[in-house]
Amino acid sequence: MPRLPPSIFWRARREISPVASLLLPVCRTLQSTANELRWIRDHVHRTPSVIPAGIRIWQLCEERSRGVPLQYLLKTQPFGPLEILCRKGVLIPRQETESYTFHLSSILSSSSSSSSSSSPLTILDLCTGTGCIPLLLLCCSQKSSSHFSCTGIDISARAISLAKQNLSHNLALIPSASSSIQFIRGDIFSTKFTSEIYAQHLPDAAEIDVLTANPPYISPSDFRSQTARSVRHYEPRLALVPDSVPSEVSKKYGCREEDVFYARILEIAGDLKPKRVVLEVAGWEQAVRVVEMAQAQRDTRGTDYKVIEIWRDDVHGVRDAGESTEIWGQRIRVKGEGDGRVVYLSRLLD
C-alpha cells in the first residue's frame, strides 16, 4: 500500500480530531477516518462505563490503528436490519454476503408466493459462522406467510455459540426464529455428515429447498498477497483458507486446494438434492471453476442443474443488464456489478 503524505495527517488532526491521525493509516481516506471516528464515539456514548469517554475513544482508536477490525471493537456489524454480534475467532459478515442474501430472499419470496405448498421452506447453511445468512433469510420472510426451517452448521464451537447468541440478540426482529432455526456443530468433511444431518436434525425433511454456503475459499498464496493485513492478522484463518482439510481428503477430489470445499459441498448437494444451491466464491475465475464442477456432476451423478447463474458483488437492487456467458455450452446468466461472487444453481426452471 502506498504511503500517505504527511499533509493528510496534518489535515486529519486539524479538520477531524487529534486522534484521527491514529485511524488514518488503516482508514486510508479522511472521509472514512471521519466516519469511523464518529461510529467509535457513538459506540462509547451508547455503552456506559466507569472509564471516562475520552480515554475509551483514545483506546479504541489505538487498537484500530493496530489493524483490529472495527467490528471486533464495536462488537457488532449491521446485516440488513439485523445487528450481528461479532467476536474474535468468528468471521465478520461481509457486505457482499448481505447483498446476495437479500437477492436470494427475493427469489424465494417470489417463488413461494406462486407455489401453493404449505410445508416450510427448508434451508441448510453450511459454514454458518455468525449465522448471518439464515438469520437474514428468516428476517426477510417475517412479512410473508411462508415459514422456514433453517439449520446452520459450523465446525467451530465459537461460531456456533455466537450464532446462537445472534439468534436471541435479534429475536425482536425475527420472533419465529427460536422455533425455526437451529445451529449445530459439525464437520462437513466427516464421512457420516449427510447421514448424521439427515438422521438427527432433518428427520422429516423430505427435501431441502436451499443449500447456502460461504466456505473458506482463499488460496494460501492469495492469503499472503491479496488479503488485507487486518483480515490476515485478526480474523480466523480457519474461516478463510481451506487448508485445515487433511491432504488425503482433499486429494480425493483432485481439484485445486482453494476449491476443495466446493467439491465437497457439491457432493453433499448430490446426496441431499436441494432445489437451489448458493455458493459464495472468491472471484470470477473461481466462479467459472465451480460452475464446471457442478456441470461435471451431470455426467458422474446425474445431477442436473437447469439454471446456473453467476452473481457479482452487488446484486441486490441492481438493474439486470442482461449479461450472460457460456460455459461448456450452457447459457449462464450473470447478474449484478463487480467481481464474480456467487454461483447459483437451481433444479427448477424459475
Binding site: 482508514c27 491479496q226 461472487r341
Partner: peptide
C-alpha cells in the same frame, strides 16, 4: 481490488 473474505470494508457509503 479484491472483495469478499479478502477485505473487511467499513465503507458503507
Amino acid at each position: 481490488g479484491p472483495g469478499g473474505q479478502k477485505i473487511n470494508k467499513t465503507n458503507s457509503a
